[in-house]
Structures are given as structure tokens and as C-alpha cells.
Amino acid sequence: MAKVTMTVNGKTRTAEAEGRTLLVEWLREGLRLTGTHVGCDTSQCGACVVHVDGEAVKACTALAQELDGAEVTTIEGMANADGSLGVVQQAFQDYHGLQCGFCTPGMVMSAAALLKENPKPTEAEVRHYLEGNICRCTGYHNIVKAVMAASGQDVAPVAAE
């Protein structure tokens, strides 16, 4: 066991970690930040995506001890300062981009990272970027719409219905 300290959602946080403790375990069990989810054990599903030093990372692929000193943002840190939903979060609600909500934190974190890299992605670019995030509920239709809407684009032309 070792004490690991990171800046999480803007605050300095410390919790213990074994050598084998994954970042996602450290967040969920060490800090009780349970918004980040675990949906698989092969780094395929993307439910655990967080931002580490500004980059989208599957938190099941990183060891907590190796990230001592890192800056981490989780879904709990994505709302506006006044507590209202951030742009991506609000678009997911507006366009019904979530159902059961389990993949949602990872989806939102991936979508936010995409929009940082590519502020006006096409439908195909959104779909390609989100390949590493599995959703079983929505068929991705409304997620794609939400991400494009969050980028400020008019989604009427991409909505087939």
C-alpha cells in the first residue's frame, strides 16, 4: 500500500493504493467517486473513461500508483461552477442521449475529449471517435446527435427521422 495523491476535479485528493490498484478502483473505492463505472475487464467498453492531464483515458488501463501527481477530471467534475449541467451533459439530456445511464459517464468524457480535439466533428467522425465506448441502450443515434449538438451544429440534417 502506498499513499497516492492526485488533483481530482480541481481538488487535491489522497488515498491508498496497492501496486495493482487501477485508477478506476482508486477513484471508486478510494475517493468514493462512483460516477466512473466499470463495464468490462478487457478495456473494451469505455464506461470508465476519465481525463488524465487533459487526455481521455480508460481508467481501467492505468495503475493508480503510476499517476501520483496527475490531474484527473471525472464525470463529477463536468458540471458548471453553479452546478448546472455542462454543455456536453446538457446536450445528452436535451437529445435523449442516455437511457440506463451506465455507459453515460464514459460517453460524456469521451465526447468532451473529442470536441476539444475537433470542435465541429462530422457524424462519421463522432461515430469513429466513440468506437471505444459501448452503449447497449441507445443504438448510438441520440448520442451522435447530442455530441454534434454540443458542438453547436444543427443536428436536424443528421436526424433521419
Partner: peptide, 21 residues
């Protein structure tokens, strides 16, 4: 209407079984 449950799911405040300790 927008779904009321979305707010907790979008902010990490959902309470799934694995979140219960």
C-alpha cells in the same frame, strides 16, 4: 419533457448497486 433521471446519471450521482457499500 426532458428526462428527470438524466441529471443524476449525467453528473455521476446515479446510485447503482456497485455504488452501494
Amino acid at each position: 419533457p426532458k428526462r428527470r433521471e438524466d441529471v443524476r446519471f449525467l453528473t455521476g450521482k446515479g446510485r447503482y448497486t456497485d455504488d452501494i457499500n
